[in-house]
Design a protein around this nucleic acid. Sequence first.
DNA 1: GTGGAAACGAGAATCGTTCCTGTTTACTCT
DNA 2: AGAGTAAACAGGAACGATTCTCGTTTCCAC
Lengths: 143, 143
Amino acid sequence: MDDLHATAAQRLGAADLRYTTSRRRVVTVLADAERPLTIPEILAADPGLAQSSTYRNLAELIGARVVHRIVSGEEFSHYELAEDLTAHHHHLVCTRCGRVEDFTPSERLEADLHHSLAQVADAAGFEVELHRLDLVGTCAGCR
Amino acid sequence: MDDLHATAAQRLGAADLRYTTSRRRVVTVLADAERPLTIPEILAADPGLAQSSTYRNLAELIGARVVHRIVSGEEFSHYELAEDLTAHHHHLVCTRCGRVEDFTPSERLEADLHHSLAQVADAAGFEVELHRLDLVGTCAGCR
DNA sequence: GTGGAAACGAGAATCGTTCCTGTTTACTCT
DNA sequence: AGAGTAAACAGGAACGATTCTCGTTTCCAC
């Protein structure tokens, strides 16, 4: 997890940005959570953080590919560490409470996906950056 | 396509809503487009539509499961007919221009997906409503 | 140390979307 | 047909998550 901060610092540095204390704190909050968090959740997890700075820092962390933003559609966006800092995974989005959880599909499905999607993209002349696979429904707590 | 309007009318009726002229016009615009449209695009396609009414009607059409909303994250949301009124498909989202295109994966991938996702959902106690699979990247026109 | 650029943070501004409200439309029941 | 009633309409005001502004503070290089 020391590793994580080293990587974050390096990626920010590559974009001529500093890995300041408040940016490190945002990254720490996201690393400690085991699911994507909203801005209010991030601020609640570390009350020392200022809202405006956190929005700005998240934007810069996203630009440096340290953080990823998930726009679920309802209310707040969710933020999590970039996939290559954790593990490739997808999301279970609850339409009742808005909560977002992570899940990892089987290796086999993931490999098939990659293969099939590459074909589709080629055919459309589309250059794939990433793929998103979300399950939308009702979580265990809301059923 | 007459069929489409009949289904729309029926679904609205089930929710005690009327299939009025302006709602029919919104549905017609979406049916004529071969990709998800934004509000400005819908209004441009039929200048007789009022913005506020269109937002409200889209919300009601969504509630009646006639229309589906895609929140891409940047600027406007995109709207399209519900999948069971067209065909099951997914999206190519361009990060440069914000355009959203449809694509249909192979039957086989789709079947595998269904199977694997059902397992994941069961394990998490999650009740799946639908799955979303998006390819995010750069479209042919922006490369 | 000192200069200058980057980052901070409180509040203002932005803008897609939703809400309010008076008017119009369209079914239903005589 | 005509009145009564509820839904739908449409213009504009309001909302709220996010972004911007700008004066202050921090940090790094020389």
